[in-house]
Amino acid sequence: MTEPSTTHAIEVTINGKIYHREVEARQLLVHFIRDTLDLTGTHIGCDTGSCGACSVILNGKLVKSCMLLAPQADGAVIDTVEGLAADGELAPLQESFAAHHGLQCGYCTPGMLMSATYLLRENPTPTAEEVRRGIKGNLCRCTGYVNIVRSILAVAEANRARLTGTSAEGGQQ
């Protein structure tokens, strides 16, 4: 990639699987994920970095995949919503969204789940305020956020119980 070019060969690891593709330099990462790799769990909402529906975790950092070009992801390790469930079992966060009505139309949900996943990795026991700040980059036009926050806090609560049960430092931030 040390010579300017309109196309580049890239290698990207998504949800543990390695993909090699030739991409146009102008292709947005979200289009690479959805159209080239057919991983359509990641959504496109606004295409301007405002709504967060396209959020993925890239090299451990939450990003909006419509705000990067595909070649920028060369060599990256990416987690998308498809990677949350394992062995046919939904992740606790996904179960919690279902249990607490954390979604209505579901359009923002993949991005919301990735933001919540990132938040809980950084801080397994966030307060309501921290949850609200954590999903600030994700718009939901149905729920009014109350049940989304509730869904995430329920997992935080389970984490807190687990941490205080198994570790002397449990529950501390």
Binding site: T2, P4, T6, A25, D47, D74
Partner: peptide
């Protein structure tokens, strides 16, 4: 959204980046 065609390059050093910025209008 489709962008206008553009070239992309990832230089290995600041010197290389500065050279690319100077030599490419």
């Amino acid at each position: 959204m489709l962008l206008k065609s553009v070239e992309y390059v990832r230089p290995g050093s600041v010197d290389e980046a500065l050279h690319l910025l100077r030599s490419n209008a």
